[in-house]
Simulated assay, not measured.
Amino acid sequence: MELSRQRRFVTPAPEETIEDLAARALPDQPLQAAVDSIKSWNLHVFAMRRPPGLMLGSDVIFVEPPLAHG
């Protein structure tokens, strides 16, 4: 059985901000664009968590959009 490709993700480093994570995970993108993309791909952290944007070391933070399965 062949394994399917999975979405790329990272876990936050201690004390890492979303800006730090975006710069590390998406270095080829402008910082604000990278932050906005990561926020949109991780609503479980940036829209639903209280306080919004609190990242934990155990979080899975997706650094690419959902993959199309066909």
Score class of each variant (00 low, 15 high):
D36R: 05
R8N: 07
L31M: 08
F62I: 00
L26P: 05
F9I: 04
A33P: 03
E15D: 14
T11S: 12
L67E: 06
Q29I: 02
R49C: 08
I61A: 07
G70A: 15
R7F: 02
D28F: 10
E15Q: 14
I38N: 10
D28E: 14
I61S: 07
P66G: 10
R24N: 13
P30V: 11
P27F: 00
R24C: 10
T11I: 06
F62M: 01
A33N: 06
A23Y: 05
P30C: 07
R50V: 05
R49V: 04
V63A: 03
R7Q: 11
F9T: 01
A68S: 15
D28T: 13
N42I: 06
L67T: 08
K39Q: 12
M48Q: 10
P12Q: 05
L54K: 15
I38P: 00
L67I: 13
H69N: 03
T11Q: 12
V63G: 01
I18Y: 11
A25N: 04
R24V: 10
L3T: 03
P27M: 00
A23D: 04
D36L: 03
A13D: 11
P65I: 02
M55E: 01
V10R: 12
F9K: 06
I18S: 00
F9C: 03
Q32F: 00
F62L: 09
N42C: 08
P30M: 09
G70Y: 15
R49W: 05
L56D: 08
P52Q: 12
P30W: 06
S40Q: 02
E64N: 03
L43M: 11
E15A: 15
A22K: 04
E64K: 01
Q29P: 00
P52I: 13
H44F: 09
E64P: 03
P66H: 14
I61Q: 02
I61G: 06
M48D: 08
G53K: 07
D36C: 03
V10Q: 03
Q29N: 07
R49G: 02
A13P: 08
I38W: 12
M1I: 15
K39L: 13
A47N: 07
S40M: 01
H69I: 07
E16L: 04
M55A: 05
R5P: 08
P14K: 09
L31F: 05
L54Q: 13
E64H: 01
Q6S: 10
D28Q: 11
P51C: 13
F62C: 04
L67H: 09
R7A: 10
A25D: 03
V63W: 00
P66T: 14
V10K: 04
V35C: 13
S4L: 12
R50W: 02
V60M: 03
L26Y: 01
F9P: 00
S58F: 03
G70R: 12
A22L: 07
S4C: 12
K39V: 15
P65G: 14
A68G: 04
P12L: 13
H44G: 09
L31V: 10
A25L: 02
D59N: 07
P52A: 13
M1N: 12
F62W: 12
E64S: 02
